[in-house]
């Protein structure tokens, strides 16, 4: 009986110590990892925030939404940027490891833009045509009103949220085997700008040196360019939210940073980078 009391006392002391350590103030370093689509936006946020909060260090890296979510699950990042919602399997991992469903914060809105080479005669495509192009069913530009030339596809790696989102919303199946995967939307834009028969997709914020393709929901619909107005009105058919994910409700410096991102000042940066604010 005496020994069990001792055991209980030791267990109590260990528990208090563990709780004490757990709630010790953490150093003011915030790590952000994930979506390549969001990396410029996240860097801009960090840069501006650190100027006005010099005691906080924010480290931003890309790698893709999947990579960011893995980092969130394995505890190597505080904030995960993702251009797609968490999958149920990923949420299960958070439940199992942290007894948490994770905290999802939509922080910007984006339109997935279709990039064409500036010399391409095609200027608009329907979702169905885009799906057929990226799944390899349509292989020649003449099938969609362009010249007689083979279509060359450029896309993202499968760890990318943009890859997953585009696959689910547009391709609705497997990508064509000849779709060249590139690390980041900037690389897709660069490849399309050099290939007159190229077509690619990615976040609107990266589109420089290429032509934006108008997109229509179906054959009978009107085609729209991805602009602030068409995305806000819901006219542009390929839009999505960009998210920040955390394991638990943010506290301390992370909370302050997230609150700032959602403030009018943070959302102004969203516009500047080429995305669209959520508020």
């Amino acid at each position: 009986m005496k020994s069990s009391k001792k055991l209980a006392l030791i267990a109590g002391i260990v528990l208090v110590a563990v709780i004490g350590f757990a709630f010790m103030p953490a150093p003011k370093k915030i790590t952000v990892k994930g979506s390549d689509t969001m990396v410029i936006l996240a860097q801009k946020w960090a840069e501006i925030y650190m100027k006005s909060n010099p005691d906080v260090a924010i480290q931003v890296t890309g790698g893709g939404s999947g990579t960011g979510i893995s980092a969130l699950i394995n505890g190597s990042t505080d904030i995960c940027n993702s251009s797609r919602p968490l999958k149920s399997s990923e949420m299960d991992k958070l439940k199992e490891r942290y007894s948490s469903l994770g905290v999802e914060i939509p922080c910007a809105k984006d339109g997935i833009t279709i990039f064409l080479n500036e010399g391409n005669a095609v200027s608009e495509l329907s979702i169905k045509q885009l799906g057929a192009i990226f799944s390899g069913k349509i292989r020649n530009w003449k099938e969609v009103g362009g010249p007689d030339a083979e279509i060359r596809l450029y896309g993202r790696e499968n760890s990318s949220g943009t890859y997953v989102f585009f696959q689910e919303k547009v391709v609705k199946g497997d990508y064509a085997a000849n779709c060249q995967t590139l690390p980041g939307t900037a690389a897709v834009v660069n490849a399309v700008s050099k290939d007159k028969n190229g077509i690619g997709y990615g976040g609107a914020a990266y589109a420089q040196g290429v032509k934006h393709c108008k997109v229509k929901k179906d054959d009978k619909s009107r085609a729209f360019l991805a602009t602030a107005e068409t995305i806000a009105k819901g006219e542009y058919p390929i839009t999505r939210y960009l998210y920040m994910y955390m394991r638990n409700r943010p506290t301390g410096d992370v909370k302050k940073y997230v609150d700032w991102i959602l403030s009018s000042e943070g959302q102004k940066v969203v516009n500047e980078v080429g995305y669209f604010p959520v508020k």
């Binding site: 942290y98 007894s99 394991r247 638990n248």
Partner: peptide, 12 residues
């Protein structure tokens, strides 16, 4: 039933 709450960190 599985109930998850965020009370100073995850609680199940």
């Amino acid at each position: 039933a599985q109930f998850y709450a965020d009370v100073l960190g995850g609680l199940t």
